[in-house]
Amino acid sequence: MFEARLGSTTLLKKIVDALREILSQSTLDCSDSGIQLQAMDNSHVSLVSMLLQNDCFEKYRCDRNISLGLDLKSLSKVLKCASGDDAVTISAPDKADKVQLSFESAGKERTADYELRLLNLDQEHLGIPETDYSCVVIMPAIEFARICRDMTSFSESVVIACSKDGIKFSASGEMGSANIKLSQTSKGDVDLTVEEPVTLSFAGRYLSTFTRATPLSEKVKIGMAADVPLLVEYPIEDYGYIRYYLAPKVDD
């Protein structure tokens, strides 16, 4: 038996919104310690890794490991039927072909149950090595979203250059070019840890897709090292994270 109750549906809505543009279907791997997800987008350019620890939930029970293959569009439709302040319980028996989502209003006077058919998804799991990033930048998530949006109107590629002086985003296309530089401030809203300067080029479309996770967190962490994927990490309160990895563009 698997059963997990969240005090507010808003958190689940934000998580699904952060995933569903990049993944149409995905498997939630549920174990005693919590819920994990790992999946590549259809083009195998990026990878999403999510963790929700069991202490994120008001109630959590997972008798044996269970994988719940879900269509995220369908899940999103079900979540639209709920109010943000409803409590939500996700449950499934051990050998399930359906998952149940039960919503309870804040005053407990309304309950609503939905069943979603599970999908049997054959998902490849990759081992993500511990990486010592040469540059780690923590910045306001809203600022990162704004920069990604502004960059993608100029060019398909975004160059990110990070050094002790700051982090610089550049895009250059037919209509012209854009450069945005953020320096570390005494206010502490942009925090840079730089061992070695790094410059890498990425597909702006994917960066913009990652910023769907902005409502989850005030801050976003960006990790860069030469010749490895970019890390864009949004914490989920104190209970987990969504990490996006994006393969760099390389010289042809």
Binding site: M40, E124, L126, I128, A247, D251, D252
Partner: peptide
């Protein structure tokens, strides 16, 4: 000229 690399080429298959 740059080309997009594939994410799975950076991580090990489990």
């Amino acid at each position: 000229k740059t080309k997009q690399s594939n994410i799975s080429s950076f991580f090990t298959k489990k």
